[in-house]
Amino acid sequence: MYTYDIFDDIFNLRDTVNNFFNDYTGRWRGREFPNMEIYEGKDDLEIRALVPGIKAADLNIHLVDNNLIIEGEKKNDYADNPYIRRERQFGSFKKSFTLPYKVNADAISADLINGILHIRLQKSEDAKPKKIEIK
């Protein structure tokens, strides 16, 4: 057990300043939840989204025209006990974004692995590059 120590407060302030430039998971400024990244292959796209603590049953993915919509609910796991620190955030979310290509709506697959959602999409035929013959 510790007794109050004035230096603790001083070091806390130092930590706050030190951490100002650190990245906290799930707290990237100005980005909607969930944070994601997009990889592009020759004929396909792969999307990864960080969704820690969310079950597959609480996630929905829709494709509307060229927009991919990820929505769901992150259910809180709060315990009925006093909290010392509460940084994680819970609640419903919906994120929509326009895909850079038309995709084949019948060939979308999604996996949830260790808190990361992987979505694989195939480019539709008319989005693939075509060589134009010059006569």
């Binding site: 906290y24 998971t25 820690p52 909290y83 509460r86 940084e87 994680r88 808190g115 990361i116």
Partner: peptide
């Protein structure tokens, strides 16, 4: 070293402390 700081919840009961850290992708 640049690191990611996992968001953490901590609560206390009479017998124990429980910490929950968000570390997506970790095995």
């Amino acid at each position: 070293e640049r690191v990611l700081v996992p968001l953490t919840d901590i609560y206390e009961t009479t017998d124990q402390y429980t910490l929950k850290l968000e570390m997506p992708g970790i095995t």
